[in-house]
Design a protein around this nucleic acid. Structure first.
Length: 290
DNA sequence: ACCCAGGAAGCTC
DNA sequence: GAGCTTCATGGG
């Protein structure tokens, strides 16, 4: 078990706010499976105790965005008019830096679904196509890479068995599209090239590239951009964030998702992704808190 | 029985 | 663009 001093960080909020889906909490300790890694971690005040299959403290710092200047982000959000009630409720929440492929697969599954079901779907996918990995007594399944999923036949049928429903058809279409645009017969190489190309684009180009994929619209694209590709100016807007923006900034007026997204991006600029996570956390927990 | 769930796509207007 | 329906499936 390793040890790290941290400040301005809340592990519970960060893990449980819905950015990631593959985690469990046992006796106050979180077991997070990310790609082919397992991170065991718990927090006592400003101390983090953790252990990981691969990567030590450098992995944890990067994965949990502990290398960012939090007070700078907070003061910027405050200056841009994010209400104090929202800031204090979500304070300590940080963006998790996910693997782009895992993030894309996960959020394609999220459309018109709910978090418990998304978790079940992804766990089913990993149990069947991933590899068994373990850390001490805890064992889990890796998130399968592109070729571990797409070198099989009847991909759509498999995803239906895993409970993805109507979203199942998007998966074979996505790999076909990526392999075609990257001009590669190898799924691993195709996705690698695809994401590294997107990383070098500006926000508009990157979003265009992602939304050209089947099953990837504005919301899913923004999640992948914000949670895995470092585009902090993305403002992923779902029904919850739309509701939150409406209450906080439009006096409860019924605004569209598109309107709320444009507002969030204009208002919060390069910290839009943090603003979005704070608003999401606030709106989903405000009954609990008050 | 009905509605909604971290939406997207394919329509019509 | 905005407004509608459909797409599986599970839970309230």
């Amino acid at each position: 078990m390793q040890r790290m001093h941290i400040s301005d960080f809340d592990l519970e909020k960060t893990v449980e706010c819905g950015q990631i889906f593959r985690w469990e909490k046992r006796d106050g300790t979180y077991y997070i499976t990310a790609q082919n890694n397992i991170l065991l971690i718990r927090q006592h005040g400003d101390i983090l105790n953790f252990s990981a299959v691969r990567g030590g403290s450098s992995f944890v710092k990067r994965y949990l965005s502990l290398d960012e200047d939090y007070s700078k982000i907070i003061s910027s959000l405050r200056k841009d008019g994010l209400p104090e009630e929202v800031i204090s409720s979500a304070y300590g929440l940080r963006l998790i830096r996910q693997d782009p492929f895992e993030c894309l697969m996960s959020y394609v599954a999220s459309s018109a679904s709910n978090i418990p079901r998304i978790k079940r779907n992804l766990n089913s996918l990993c149990r069947n196509f991933g590899r068994r990995i373990s850390l001490g007594k805890f064992s889990s399944y890796s998130f399968p890479g592109p070729s571990e999923i797409f070198s099989r036949r009847k991909i759509e049928n498999s995803f239906r068995k895993f409970g993805f429903g109507f979203r199942a058809r998007f998966y074979p279409q996505i790999v076909q599209s990526v392999m075609s645009t990257e001009n590669s017969e190898n799924a691993d190489e195709a996705f690698k090239k695809f994401f590294s190309r997107i990383r070098r684009m500006n926000y508009e180009g990157a979003k265009q590239a992602l939304t050209s994929l089947p099953g990837v619209g504005s919301k899913v694209a923004d999640c992948v951009l914000a949670f895995s590709l470092g585009f902090s100016e993305a403002f992923p807007t779902d029904v919850w964030v739309r509701r939150g923006v409406s209450i906080l900034f439009f006096n409860g007026r019924n605004i569209s998702v598109r309107e709320a997204e444009a507002f969030g991006r204009r208002r919060f600029g390069e910290n839009a992704a943090y603003a979005q996570e704070f608003i999401y956390y606030w709106i989903r927990n405000r009954k609990k808190l008050s």
